[in-house]
């Protein structure tokens, strides 16, 4: 697998592992000439990992989360999967958080920073696609 095009991880469901993965992803972006994507990708990646950690793993800090980052010429794709029961995306995806509600911002982050959001039927795997400016690589 070409590490410049793809990055794959399997981590345990705890905040330190999420932080470490996000730091590694940022380095990967910078090394690939996509430093300007660091913030939006970090937002998407962190949100997906947090959802798996907080909701998909049932509070089990040893549960596994799988993550895959892939870049094409004009897009980045983030896939995060856990072994939990899944997110009820069909009824929740279009919900808008009321401003006074301190929950529900994760989907708003997806809408802000991803151009496409897809869940598998069970809802335990999310794929996020983001358009990027084409980077000339040697």
């Amino acid at each position: 697998m070409n590490s410049r095009k793809c990055l794959a991880f399997e981590i345990v469901a705890n905040p330190a592992a999420v932080d470490a993965l996000c730091a590694r992803a940022e380095t990967w972006l910078i090394e690939g000439g996509l430093g300007t994507e660091s913030f939006p990708v970090a937002m998407l990646l962190r949100e997906s990992l947090n959802n798996s950690m907080l909701h998909g793993s049932g509070g089990d800090p040893t549960a596994q989360i799988r993550c895959h980052l892939q870049r094409g010429r004009k897009w980045l794709k983030i896939t995060v999967e856990d072994d939990g029961p899944g997110f009820d995306w069909a009824t929740r995806l279009e919900c808008r958080a009321d401003i006074e509600n301190c929950h529900g911002r994760g989907l708003e982050i997806y809408r802000l920073y991803a151009d496409a959001v897809d869940f598998n039927r069970r809802g335990n795997r999310v794929s996020l696609r983001r358009r990027i400016a084409e980077v000339m690589t040697s």
Partner: peptide
């Protein structure tokens, strides 16, 4: 601070409320 996530935003809103 250069990173904030939905839990951080939730904390700000809860504190504001």
């Amino acid at each position: 601070a250069d990173v904030v996530d939905s839990s951080g935003i939730g904390l700000l809103i809860a504190t504001h409320n």
